[in-house]
Design a protein around this nucleic acid. Structure first.
Lengths: 185, 185
DNA sequence: GTCTATAACTCGATAGAC
DNA sequence: GTCTATCGAGTTATAGAC
């Protein structure tokens, strides 16, 4: 683990930088200066700019997956998991949501380094969510539909939060959504 | 209107180009070549790259606003308006959704040329939507909440559509959402 | 309004010493 | 692993003829 630490440390700082400055107009040079290294070092560790971006995408992806997985182990009720994960996402929204939507836009456009992100966005959480709803008593087809709606709602409210910054309003909306779904059951 | 036609024609072609190629890695030169002009002409008409991007954002914005406004005049039932506008958006999603999310990401990051987009995203449709729900019989506070949820759901499903390309599935989800809202009323 | 030419700069990537 | 130096290509923006 120690051999990888130079690279991983750099990667961590790069992610923070991208979160606040965006990837679109961050050159290797400005990024390197911002995180206290040289653009030579970035190319040394990641091979190229796209290599770095690929590593960023992969790391953020895996990190969120692990958070969700830990929560799924920790809670019984799927709605508790949903609420906890929403809190986690919303807490970090001001920093990470812009990066999320920027990278997602690039994934939609078919950028190579974001290919793994695209397939993750398309199928990533849906299976876990559906399973959660089934465990909570929904029928299979209904669970699939409601999962898709819930995922869309979470992303839409994250979008709202990133634009307006109105955490209280968005939290209230999310609560209203949960109520709507459970009532209809 | 004839004096502006050279500029407007250029602007229209630039928007099409950005929709399929993204703004992130479209230089003035590649863009100019792609739409059959020179980068000098773009700087002549729009002053700078940011000037062009600002004009693009503004034009797309105004165009969508006009479509919605026309539909509001044409239909009585707010749900008909919602359905019609969703069809309009979804029809163009494969082309425009990536551009929409890319530009939105830049607006969230506070890019100057996307400042007007940001304020539009934050407050643009909400008033019209809320008014629609009130006209359909909702109380004021409830109409505001449901509007916020509906907007978030539309954006989330647009995101879904752009990633998966599954129009039928997304249309079905949208129908389910409408049902959910009307049942709860 | 449209062209060619070019200034002034930044980009990603590499070379090679240490 | 980290540094300085630099290449060649690409960038925005401007100058000036027509």
């Amino acid at each position: 683990m120690t051999e990888a630490s130079a690279r991983d440390q750099l990667l961590g700082r790069a992610i923070e930088w991208f979160a606040t400055h965006g990837v679109g107009d961050s050159s290797l040079r400005t990024l390197a200066e911002g995180i206290g290294t040289s653009h030579r070092m970035i190319n040394y560790h990641f091979g190229s700019r796209d290599g770095l971006l690929g590593a960023v995408v992969e790391t953020v992806e895996r990190s969120e997956r692990e958070v969700l997985s830990t929560m799924l182990d920790g809670f019984e009720d799927p709605f508790e998991v949903g609420a906890a994960f929403w809190t986690h996402v919303a807490d970090r929204a001001t920093i990470f949501a812009p990066l999320f939507f920027e990278l997602s836009g690039q994934a939609m456009q078919g950028k190579p380094y974001a290919a793994s992100l695209r397939s993750w966005l398309g199928s990533g959480w849906l299976a876990e969510l559906t399973e959660g709803f089934e465990r909570a008593g929904w029928g299979a087809t209904e669970a699939a539909t409601v999962s898709r709606l819930s995922l869309a709602m979470a992303r839409g409210l994250l979008f709202d939060l990133a634009v307006t910054g109105d955490r209280a309003g968005v939290d209230a909306a999310m609560a209203r959504w949960t109520q709507l779904v459970t009532e209809d059951r």
